[in-house]
Nucleic acid binder design. Structure first.
Length: 283
DNA sequence: AGCGTCTCCTGCTTGC
DNA sequence: TGCAAGCAGGAGACGC
């Protein structure tokens, strides 16, 4: 579910809610998510104040008073929800971890498919730095620009759609926004990456399309396909602005185009595009 | 190094 | 209606 815009929204919600609050306790309801949950998670954050929350690509970093940090990835179905249940109400399903703050407010980490993860990062072994070194620049950062992308793609034979999903090339783009950005840039998803890299204007179009789509999605609260919601449980509505994603056989939204949106599978994932509007050749 | 395939887990949708 | 198969937004391990 969550790509960069959804993670950004969740991060902002978490910041509003958690910064300067202190953890009272943590209840863990599952032995493992994607990875085993650190056994010392609860004791390491207990009585620690949240100093800062940030986002890099699809990762959320919760920094604590004692210089520890929680590195969080939401996988496909992870989310944080404010727990507002009354005493006799049942817990919502799939709550994997519950954070109880010292003011008695509760935040639930909910993750149906358990592909998310929590890592405890100690000040000594800085896993965050290690992770960032392996990750490409965040799609909304200044480091992700025309020169960088052109250089990175110039020897790549993989199709451009799969390249955009590769977090080592660029951080934060997932399956939805890859298709939407390629539509906006009028580039076919099956184009070989290095072919696009030869055309600086195309690369520049692609970079600005990616940034535009991601920012646009953040503005409207992200995309709610199945279950992305903000912490209060409100849905986003970028899904109503999709031009191609999930629109197989529907009419292309381009005013001058009478073609229908096509769905193909690339490296095991759906890609949606308009064959007429999105070209593989040079302009 | 770069690329393609497979896998983790659960729920929803689709088709018989 | 019931059931099984197929699909899903992510990323890492593995083999070539």
């Amino acid at each position: 579910m969550p790509e960069l815009p959804e993670v950004e929204i969740i991060k902002n919600n978490l910041s509003d809610y958690l910064v300067n609050k202190t953890f009272h306790s943590i209840k863990v309801f599952t032995s493992k998510l994607r990875y085993k949950i650190p056994h010392n998670l609860a004791e390491s954050v207990k009585n620690q104040r949240v100093t800062h929350i940030s986002r890099v690509a699809k990762y959320i970093i919760v920094s604590l008073d004692n210089n520890y940090a929680l590195l969080i990835h939401l996988g496909m179905t992870g989310n944080f929800l404010i727990n507002t249940k009354k005493k006799n109400q049942k817990d919502s399903k799939h709550v994997r971890i519950r954070f109880v703050m010292s003011d008695e407010s509760k935040i639930d980490y909910v993750d149906i498919r358990k592909f998310g993860f929590f890592k405890l990062v100690t000040p000594q072994k800085n896993e965050i730095r290690k992770l960032l070194a392996e990750l490409g620049p965040d799609a909304l950062s200044d480091e992700f620009n025309t020169n960088y992308l052109q250089n990175t793609l110039k020897n790549r034979t993989v199709n451009i759609k799969s390249a955009l999903l590769n977090q080592k090339i660029v951080g934060g783009i997932g399956n939805i926004y890859a298709s939407e950005a390629l539509f906006r840039a009028k580039i076919s998803p099956i184009t070989e990456s290095k072919k696009i890299a030869k055309d600086k204007i195309k690369i520049s179009d692609l970079v600005s399309s990616i940034k535009f789509i991601l920012n646009d999605a953040i503005q409207v609260g992200g995309s709610t396909i199945k279950d992305h919601k903000n912490m209060k449980g409100e849905s986003g509505y970028f899904q109503y602005k999709f031009n191609v994603y999930n629109r197989e056989n529907m009419e292309c939204n381009d005013q001058n185009c009478d073609s229908k949106i096509k769905r193909i599978v690339q490296t095991g994932r759906s890609s949606f595009y308009c064959e007429k509007c999105q070209k593989t050749g040079s302009r």
